[in-house]
Nucleic acid binder design. Structure first.
Length: 153
DNA sequence: CGCGTTTGACCTGCGC
DNA sequence: GCGCAGGTCAAACGCG
């Protein structure tokens, strides 16, 4: 298999492992886990099946921290920024990205730590239904810097 | 000419 | 019931 897909770090891979654990690597009590990544269990898809029957609609969400000076980490996919909002518990704004693809509604959320601007929190939501267009030049670097990730929902 | 980015306004959900 | 926070969409502009 010489396909670049071999290195696909799809969510299902992580979800299958189910070894994700919310390890707080924050040296200090960062407010991020108070009002950013951890909360928001309610999904917009919930209203779709609000008929009263809730199917096993799992929302894939993965968040990992990366130590980089650049907010935009190219993981091999193309992302289109569709919004930016400043969170209250954080002096830095949060960026919202969406995968520009047919039928690929994967969203990515990037936020910088309010205290350590060197730490960038990237949250992925959804699964890619298409192969990677190219190999991320710094993909290996991203994996190395992947300090922690949370997979649930 | 296509699309990616930017900014503002609007909507929804939750808390008080 | 109202307010706050977060999230999303839309229109316009700039760049390639």
């Amino acid at each position: 298999m010489g396909n670049p897909q071999t290195h696909h770090f799809d969510a299902q891979n992580i979800g299958n492992e189910s070894k994700a654990e919310c390890k707080s690597q924050y040296p200090d009590n960062t407010n991020i886990s108070d009002s950013g990544i951890t909360s928001h269990s309610s999904g917009s898809e919930v209203k779709a099946n609000s008929k009263g029957e809730n199917k096993g609609l799992k929302k894939h969400r993965y968040a990992f921290q990366t130590r980089s000076q650049i907010d935009i980490l190219d993981d091999g996919y193309r992302w289109r920024k569709y919004g930016q909002k400043t969170v209250k518990s954080g002096k830095f704004p949060r960026s919202y990205y969406k995968c520009t693809h047919k039928g690929c509604n994967v969203k990515k959320q990037i936020q910088r730590s309010s205290k350590d601007e060197e730490i960038v929190v990237t949250t992925y939501e959804g699964m890619h239904t298409h192969p990677i267009g190219k190999l991320a030049d710094n993909f290996d670097q991203i994996l190395r810097q992947m300090q922690a990730y949370t997979a649930t929902f």
